[in-house]
Write a protein that binds this DNA or RNA. Structure first.
Lengths: 130, 130
DNA sequence: CTTGACCTTCCAGCGACTGGAGGCCCTATC
DNA sequence: GATAGGGCCTCCAGTCGCTGGAAGGTCAAG
């Protein structure tokens, strides 16, 4: 398979796939013309990476996950720990965003949104007081 | 005031303040020794920026917000529109993170987390099937 | 033989800082 | 007057995960 094919099948842009090769996540073969030549196993890895990235794992997490995936002697505890840590980070981010959402939502509601200059949003930003 | 003082008062690192000057958000004076010399108005702007950033506004949004703040003839509708658009982006992000959280949470729960290699987290990443 | 789609590499840029090197300035103490 | 320590300066590079674009080779169809 050429890069375009795998890109389609894995649902990742060619650029991203080249990047993943650059940083050593995959090592496709090379055709005589210099084109990358992808095996089924490469496609499989790329799909794995796509799903892991979609769950928000960092590239380094993905590297570790791939290594664990390919290690028959892994302990599921290691995978779980990684996933749990990532989950915690996501929950932190959600909490942070929820806090912003709450404040912003209040501010937006309190703003008339008309032609006049008076604006509680700007007042809040200016003074920190509601 | 020197940069250390405003940094403390505004709750922003000196590096960030220099960066804000670099990109033209503030323009402190200069002392004869080359040190930045901050007026009350600079501190006020920095505090404004700090709060806007804490609400997740991008730097470009902050630039616009500052301009609106300093424009007596603004329409509060413009501020509200900006804030509303930002709020929508935040809500999108929250939705995306919630979706990750949900999937991840299920996966983590379903993983034994012991010495054995069997791991539903990896299976899911490998196949996309639960 | 040409066109156009595909592939290659390499370099630069995104956002919002952050770290570090190398060096000047200021104050206090000896 | 020398020195130590802290604060300030500029400039460059790195972060993360791509993404865009330039310049050029390759391939299949007409």
């Amino acid at each position: 398979m050429n890069i375009g094919d795998v890109a389609q099948k894995a649902g990742l842009p060619p650029k991203t796939i080249r990047y993943y090769e650059d940083i050593g996540l995959i090592t496709p073969l090379r055709d005589t013309n210099g084109y990358r030549l992808f095996r089924e196993s490469d496609l499989h890895k790329l799909a794995f990476l796509g799903r892991a990235r979609a769950l928000g794992f960092t590239i380094e997490d993905c590297r570790t996950l791939l290594a664990l995936y390919e290690d028959d002697t892994r302990a599921s505890a290691d995978v779980k720990e990684l996933a749990q840590a990532h989950l915690s980070k996501i929950e932190d981010k959600i909490a942070q965003l929820e806090s912003m959402r709450s404040t912003l939502s209040d501010l937006v509601k309190s703003c008339a949104g008309d032609n006049r200059p008076d604006c509680p949003i700007l007042s809040d930003l200016a003074t920190g007081q509601h």
